[in-house]
Design a binder for these strands. Structure first.
Lengths: 110, 110
DNA sequence: GCTCAGCTTGCAGACTTCTGCAAGTCGGCA
DNA sequence: TGCCGACTTGCAGAAGTCTGCAAGCTGAGC
């Protein structure tokens, strides 16, 4: 294999590792949206958003097409929603663990 | 919220965005393992592996404990396995799409 | 107490990624 | 045809990540 599988996986996760890109994917979960709508919700420079969209496009995670005067973006596969959900679950588990530790630490008075 | 949720999510995904860290997590899916075993399977400098383990530890994705002379690492939550599985599914979807496009491109003779 | 295996930490140089500004492209419409 | 809104591209400086070498730490066993 020219690019080992685990490297491809790492690249995919890295692609998701940016606040703007996460926001975009979350917004696209409800269906295709034009760039202008994303821009209205995300509060970032247009050029920056465009760069981040390009990253997602290159990774094959979203697809774009033109609809009249607007450029629309959509998730390339609904599996992305699962990934985000799994991420949320882990975040939840990690944060409760952390709080648990916090409580433990307090209990030990240290 | 001091750290917006989507930023925390982005950080989590970024944490997974490294070949060595992905390998570690895959290996740990089968249960806790000492560093020396990971080192034997991953082919990377000990110091490098240690750095990557520290990244995962800081993110709360793995936990470490000592067992005799060895330092053991384990997934902090089994949810991590779900995330990896979801990642695999998307990668599969994206790659088939890409092949699909490839076929299309060939069909158009371009 | 010493020594050694098994890890971790501290760096620094090479390399990537991020961000905003300025400029460019592309349809749609008057 | 010319103009305008809607995006995208090209940079370049700032910031962050990665890697290996050398040094440090910490139990276990003698």
């Amino acid at each position: 294999m020219s690019v080992p599988l685990y490297q491809a996986k790492a690249e995919m996760f890295r692609t998701l590792g940016h606040p703007v890109r996460i926001r975009v994917l979350e917004l696209l979960q409800d269906g295709p949206k034009p760039v202008r709508d994303l821009l209205a919700e995300i509060d970032v420079e247009a050029s920056n958003l465009s760069q981040q969209l390009a990253v997602l496009r290159r990774a094959g995670i979203v697809a774009s097409f033109r609809d009249g005067a607007l450029v629309m973006y959509a998730l390339s596969t609904p599996d992305v929603a699962d990934l985000l959900a799994a991420g949320r679950r882990i975040l939840g588990a990690v944060l409760t663990d952390r709080d648990g530790l916090l409580v433990e630490l307090r209990a030990q008075r240290r």
